[in-house]
Design a protein around this nucleic acid. Structure first.
Lengths: 306, 306
DNA sequence: TGTAAGTCATAGATTTTATTGATTGTTGAT
DNA sequence: ATCAACAATCAATAAAATCTATGACTTACA
């Protein structure tokens, strides 16, 4: 049984005439006759009562089968329509993972712009640690993730988005309030507060600032299960200082009032934010659109990587 | 799009592996790969995300299409099942037409026997005049009709069932009550009651009995819209005599009490009852079964024609 | 009754499509 | 670097679908 054969019997049932039915299917009459004969043999049932007069009569069972053929063809057509609708890579769900230290600052910028650039894309966001996002990406639970370099995995491709410098956040009236730029070495002398070890940002800060964890107990200055926002509040309260990625700084009243921001002395430590996807992911176009949309976001103080 | 291709994508979605899916479809791996590639190109949509490792991932749109493919295949299977059921010519509806002067006597015998011989045959009965039955048969509204010869029409085949003699029905205590057999000529002297002219039986009686309609007004002895039963009641009431087909005589109390039955003098007039169907009617087997079933009915006094 | 027109079935040739085994290219693992 | 697993590709072949031409049959009509 083939869909073509079903189309043929439907055509004959509509035209009541083999020749005309063949025409309407754009095939010759023998083609149609043979196809129908083949189907009749396969089903073991006579579908049409042929008489050499100008009428074809549909057998009782033939009518039932033709009715069912309509159903099959209609469902097949629906399949085609589903494909047609889903053809656009910028439609359907797109599951995007973002690490905790980027999500809160990037997404408020990204989402409205993406809604504009790809209105049919239904974005589903997950914030998590790099390791968890990678697992989900590998398993296909996510379509792409936004993480920070270094990130290299077999079967995964990445593309850098922007280079984001780190900055130092001080409480108002801190000793360093009049300094222009902070050398990384100086952090070793301060109460430096950091995220828990699942956050790649923590590791990057530790790596960038020699000896920053010496002196005080590591535990007292590491805040598991916390966020940059929580640590920022603690800076404002005078509990200590911290290092933040540049995009986490938004010019709000609160920031101005309670916290001082200082850049690192050049060369400033920084991280490269990138987007990653499975090598064979078919909707590459969606990735490109998201990447380009991110790169038009007004993220102050970062260097877009083209 | 072909049903085979849909089977292939369903198989891949189940096995998550091209090679194993190919095996389960009893084709080689290249066959399946090419077929899926072709379908993907036709639909303009990537259905599977291939990675050379042991994992096939179904795309979002691919999943939708595979779900719909299930529906299509299921409906196609139902089509096959319909055919399978309909394969048996002795199942399904069978629309049988019977003339008025046969139906009431044949059907009570036929129906229980046919239920036994072809339990899946759903018999639909229509009683009517020959002319109307023929129209319905020609148009396909009936599958077969039981009529009386002469009956010859292009495109229609017939087969005789039995030869049925005519008999004379007299009121009790009629002048002829002691005669053995009636010559057809004698009817001319009697009050002969007949059916209306739509009934072929009427014409046959008129033809068989010379001058039977002479003498009295034709109208007063013709009962339009009547039935043999009505006329029989009038015979019982002493209104006149009539000619009946042999099968209309059942040995009931009432018959015995009120009516005398006399055969015609040899050679007795008679009619040949036959079954007729369209030449190309596909369920010939059903016709044969019905014919054979009729010929086993206990119709007293008729000659079965084999 | 014979002829013409119309119908679907059949036959043989041809083109198209499907299928296969062998091979290649990729990728991740050892 | 080598290996193993896997899907894609290739070239050859098998199968099918399709076409034109023809045949068989029926009806309509002279």
């Amino acid at each position: 049984m083939t869909l073509t054969e079903l189309r043929y019997i439907v055509a004959v049932s509509q035209k009541n005439h083999f020749g005309k039915a063949a025409q309407s299917c754009f095939v010759s009459q023998p083609t149609l006759s043979i196809a129908i004969k083949k189907l009749e043999e396969e089903l073991g049932v006579r579908l049409f009562e042929r008489s050499s007069k100008n009428e074809i009569r549909i057998t009782e069972i033939g009518q039932q089968i033709i009715n069912q053929a309509y159903v099959v063809l209609q469902q097949a057509q629906i399949l085609g329509e589903i494909a047609q609708q889903g053809k656009d890579p910028l439609s359907g769900q797109f599951r995007l993972g973002v690490i905790y230290t980027i999500g809160p600052y990037l997404l408020p910028n990204l989402i409205p712009k993406l809604t504009e650039n790809a209105p049919d894309l239904k974005l589903i966001i997950e914030e998590n640690f790099t390791a968890n996002l990678f697992q989900s990406l590998k398993q296909g639970a996510l379509d792409a993730i936004i993480i920070s370099y270094p990130f290299e995995e077999p079967g995964i491709e990445t593309e850098p988005l922007y280079e984001e410098p780190f900055i130092v956040a001080l409480p108002k009236n801190h000793d360093w309030k009049d300094r222009d730029a902070i050398p990384t070495e100086d952090l070793a002398s301060q109460d430096l507060m950091l995220l828990g070890s699942g956050h790649c940002f923590r590791d990057q800060v530790v790596e960038a600032c020699p000896n920053c964890m010496s002196g005080n107990s590591e535990l007292t200055r590491t805040f598991e299960g916390s966020s940059l926002e929580t640590i920022r509040h603690m800076v404002a309260a005078g509990t200590g200082i911290t290092v933040l990625p540049r995009t986490s700084i938004v010019n709000s009243q609160q920031n101005e009032a309670m916290i001082d921001i200082k850049p690192f002395k050049s060369p400033s430590p920084s991280r490269t934010v990138a987007i990653a996807w499975r090598k064979h992911y078919p909707r590459k176009e969606a990735i490109v659109t998201i990447r380009e949309t991110i790169q038009t976001c007004p993220l102050s103080g970062v260097d877009i990587i083209h």
